[in-house]
């Protein structure tokens, strides 16, 4: 079986995995990272979205061994020291979730969207999130939450001495090369 070294939410893992095992099943079943759910198996719903080196991927369509040497952030790694990430806070404050099943993937996809476009219009948010389905909210409050989170993150980025939070993509302008995350000095290469 292939041997992988992967960092997930700041913790390094060294594991044997079946070659065919999907990343989401590795996360859920081998690491117990059940915060990332599975909603389909065809990359349509986006519930399983995680960040790989700061970019969103649908973990139902990435093999665990493709994550070898990479840094994964799941919903469980968004908050730090008990502080909610601005995206989590915005989802809560805007009532942007009901059953909550799509929420982990939706927040992660929104973070990747804001990385490319820190100040998106409502239409840009809607287009940017079209890979993630929600059956409960009609998306109205999700759009509002992403808009609010964007404003908070822009303000944070503009604040002097601001530093990116561990495990979470830094805010960069589209023309910058995305910075790599080495969350805990782990396996990101």
């Amino acid at each position: 079986m292939p041997h992988i070294r992967v960092t997930v939410d700041g913790v390094s893992y060294d594991d044997q995995v079946e070659a065919r095992r999907l990343l989401v099943h590795y996360l859920r079943e081998q690491l117990g990272k059940v915060g990332t759910p599975v909603g389909c198996d065809t990359t349509n719903c986006g519930a399983c979205t995680v960040l790989m080196d700061g970019r969103s991927v649908k973990s139902c369509s990435v093999l665990a061994c493709q994550a070898d040497g990479h840094d994964i952030t799941t919903v469980e790694g968004l908050s730090s020291d008990g502080d909610l990430h601005p995206m989590q806070r915005a989802f809560h404050e805007n009532h942007a979730l009901q059953c909550g099943y799509c929420t982990p993937g939706m927040m992660i996809a929104a973070l990747d969207l804001l990385r490319d476009n820190p100040d998106p219009s409502d239409d840009e948010i809607r287009e940017g999130l079209e890979g993630n389905m929600c059956r409960c909210t009609g998306y109205v409050n999700i759009v509002r939450a992403v808009r609010d989170a964007a404003a908070v993150l822009r303000a944070q980025a503009a604040a002097p001495g601001s530093e990116p939070r561990a495990g979470v993509p830094p805010q960069v302008t589209p023309d910058q090369e995305p910075a790599r995350q080495t969350a805990s000095g782990g396996a990101a290469s």
Binding site: T36, P37, V38, E76
Partner: peptide, 16 residues
């Protein structure tokens, strides 16, 4: 909502 705290942090208890 009180429900949100777990749902937005992945501390969920889906049957699966």
């Amino acid at each position: 909502r009180k429900e949100d705290a777990r749902l937005i942090t992945g501390q969920t208890n889906w049957t699966d």
